[in-house]
């Protein structure tokens, strides 16, 4: 009777022994690799041309891009946009990026900075390939960066088409790894000393918010609940206790509700009345799930802050089937 080690070794040998790699196979495979390398290089050159053209247009029309300086003014239409910093990874970055390369399917959803202490940055990758990033958690209205993304191996390339960080026309290169425990680690590479460099950090450790990344939230039993003092308390990005809906209440009186992997569930306007004890959300005609004028109203609104701001209330009205719950909303971002 052979040992399990010997039997496994023989079975592996039997399986791999049947894999014949001829000289022709080797040449074909090498050619495939070379074609893919060449394809990448051509794609990068094309991106560079598009980015250069976009940057040139923006330099002409938008004052904020004047600070880009002479580098962009000397761009040739056939040359890629220069990337002043290296795209290589430091030893620390390589250590940070241990894990599987992410797929677009895995990225789809809303992510937040893990254990945020200062910033409440949120990221969103949607199933149809759009990307949003905001340092204050406002993904839907005025994110700092908006664009489209593609995943190639461990690199997420974002072609930026808008956002308050003035990165439009740039292609951001984010090296990423799915970390142990389902987190997402990202290292931006190839970023220069541009305006749009401002929101970026050397490394991001992100945790999933949607879909269903942070369900089961509860305020501690000893939390002291107080009346809401004004709109400044509710202007934030909120997560319901089941982790199914992200509600973004903005200072201009509009709101957006996201669900699933970042799909729009509802949008409209919100008001605070009755001495800030009554929060009303009214769906607009553009809402994909609710009728125009549908209302969701929380009365007896209260808040507590135990390091995370939480609000709760009693459901006084609920016209739409979007399943916002009243137990509590947990702040993801102020």
């Amino acid at each position: 009777m052979s040992t399990i080690e010997e039997r496994l070794a023989r079975d592996i040998e039997a399986v791999t022994g049947g894999i014949v790699v001829t000289d022709s196979d080797l040449r074909d495979a090498r050619n495939q690799v070379q074609q893919r390398i060449s394809g990448r290089q051509q794609r990068h050159r094309r991106r560079g041309v598009v980015a250069a053209a976009a940057a040139a247009a923006v330099v002409v029309g938008v004052a904020t891009w004047q600070s880009l300086g002479s580098d962009d003014e000397t761009l040739s239409p056939t040359e890629p946009v220069p990337t002043p910093t290296s795209t290589s990874l430091s030893a620390a970055d390589q250590t940070f990026l241990v894990g599987d390369a992410p797929t677009a399917e895995e990225l789809a959803g809303v992510w937040r900075l893990d254990n945020p202490t200062v910033s409440r940055m949120l990221f969103m990758f949607t199933a149809d390939g759009s990307f949003s990033y905001d340092d204050t958690g406002q993904l839907s209205a005025d994110p700092m960066v908006h664009g489209t993304f593609v995943v190639d191996g461990d690199t997420i390339s974002v072609d930026v088409d808008g956002g308050t960080a003035a990165c439009a026309g740039r292609t951001l290169s984010l090296r990423a790894a799915m970390a142990a425990g389902g987190g997402l680690h990202i290292v931006p590479v190839g970023l220069g000393d541009f305006d749009c460099d401002r929101p970026f950090r050397p490394q991001w450790a992100l945790e999933r918010v949607l879909p269903g990344g942070m369900g089961g939230l509860e305020a501690p039993a000893e939390a002291v609940w107080r009346p809401v003092t004004g709109p400044e308390v509710v202007v934030a990005t909120w997560l319901d206790p089941q982790g199914e809906y992200v509600s973004e209440l903005r200072g201009d009186g509009t709101y957006t509700v996201l669900t699933g992997p970042g799909e729009l569930a509802d949008l409209g306007t919100w008001t605070l009345s009755d001495s800030s004890s009554r929060l009303s959300l009214t769906s607009s005609g553009d809402s994909p799930s609710c009728q125009s004028g549908d209302q969701f109203v929380l009365s007896n609104l209260q808040a507590t802050d135990f390091g995370t701001l939480v609000i709760r209330g009693d459901v006084a009205r609920k016209d739409c089937q979007v399943l916002l719950r009243a137990e509590a909303w947990f702040s993801l971002a102020p």
């Binding site: 052979s2 039997r7 023989r10 079975d11 022994g17 049947g18």
Partner: peptide, 21 residues
Amino acid sequence: EGPRRTPEDATLARDEVGSLV
């Protein structure tokens, strides 16, 4: 299916090649 390299191993011979893999 590669050649059965160890016919003396009756157990493995009974198994499908690759089953342990």
